[in-house]
Simulated assay, not measured.
Amino acid sequence: MRIKPKSPREALQPEPAPAPPQRSRHVRNPLVILINMVITLAVFGLAALGAALYFGKQKFEEAGPLQQEATVVISSGAGLSGITDRLAGKGVINDSMFDEWVFNLGIRFYKNATRLKAGEYAFAPGVSMQEIMTDLVEGKAVTHSVTIPEGWTTAQIIERVREHPILVGEITEVPVEGALLPETYTFARGTSRQEVLDQMKSAQEKLLSEIWERRTEGLPVGSPEELVVLASIVEKETALADERPRVAGVFVNRLNKNMRLQSDPTILYGLYGGEAWLKDRSAIKQSELKAENKYNTYQIDGLPPGPIGNPGRAAMEAVANPSRTQDLFFVADGTGGHIFAETYEQHQENVRKWRRIERERREAEKNQEAKPTTSN
């Protein structure tokens, strides 16, 4: 076929664009449109979720709004929403829906919603939500303490425990004398008074069992309970740790020789019980010394019927492993300690020295009181 040549005008005209291809019937299918829309929404949704997780994680880990240290008490059974409200109310986290949502979601993301512990918590300025979660999960609560001095009677211990402002509840069971271990005990807010006393009793039972097992053979104490009785007397006789084994040695020597212990503190306990040291007392009176009571070791042979206080570890260790000396007597030396003697004659000389020291002190006190006061 012969092609007709174009005229110069026709040659300058652009060729017409080809017609668009006819749309496929599959593209126009409603199901395909729906699938495409679902995929698009899923992509946007995943992108939005990723962005939310990224910014949420940053918010969860960044420094919080707290400006100064705050203490927050989380009660038992508060639940995650209650804990969140409590933290927001104290300013530990921002009191906004977004921040509370981030905190709740973060706790659930780490699967800790049921692991948060009750207690009293101290939060530092700028604490992050993640640090708050860690403290609540690990139970890093504020701890309080009560200190029981060695040798205190159960009455003295009960009084201190009752007066403690953080402990709660009433004491339902008063332990017997000598059943508690003097120590410093720590506890969290909400702990009951009875729980602390039970802890002291358990600690004493455990320690006494250990000490009894490693005691020196041949001691004149036939049971752990008798060891506690003698240790309570040692505790009342000296406050110096390095003297306890020697004081224990004196009493062990006296028991082995069937000599009476002649310990002044036993007189007071026999007359006044555990309340003997709730008030300051002066020297024992002659009437008290002669008064009949079953604890008076000037009147009875051997050990009294029970402890006169709650001895500490050192006193019980001293009785279980006393110093090996021939000492049978001791008296105060005027410096807070004691001077020991093997014979009664030596002891009498030591007593005379002590009485001379006492006289000199009384005279010095009288002279001090008699000095005239000058006014400016």
Rank of each mutant, 00 (worst) to 15 (best):
I3M: 04
S7H: 10
A11N: 06
A17F: 06
R25C: 00
V27S: 12
L31S: 13
I33S: 09
L34N: 03
N36L: 15
M37R: 13
I39S: 06
I39P: 02
T40K: 07
L41P: 01
F44H: 08
G45E: 03
A47C: 13
A52H: 11
F60G: 05
A63G: 05
A70S: 09
T71K: 06
V73C: 00
A78V: 05
G82E: 02
G89W: 10
V92P: 06
D99M: 11
K111S: 11
A113P: 04
A113W: 05
T114H: 13
K117D: 08
Y121N: 06
I132D: 01
M133Y: 06
V137S: 02
T154V: 10
L167K: 02
I171G: 00
V174M: 07
G178V: 03
T184P: 01
T184F: 03
R189Y: 09
E195K: 03
M200K: 14
I211T: 04
W212A: 15
R215W: 01
G218H: 12
E225Y: 13
E226R: 08
V229M: 07
I233W: 10
T238W: 09
A241F: 05
A241T: 14
A241D: 15
E243D: 01
V250W: 06
T266P: 06
I267V: 15
A276G: 02
K279L: 08
Q286F: 06
A291H: 06
D301R: 12
G302D: 04
G302V: 00
P304S: 02
P307G: 10
G309W: 10
G312A: 10
R324G: 11
F329S: 05
F330S: 00
V331A: 11
D333W: 03
E342L: 01
H347Q: 13
N350F: 07
V351W: 08
E358S: 04
E360S: 09
E365K: 13
E365Y: 03
K366P: 00
A370C: 04
T373W: 05
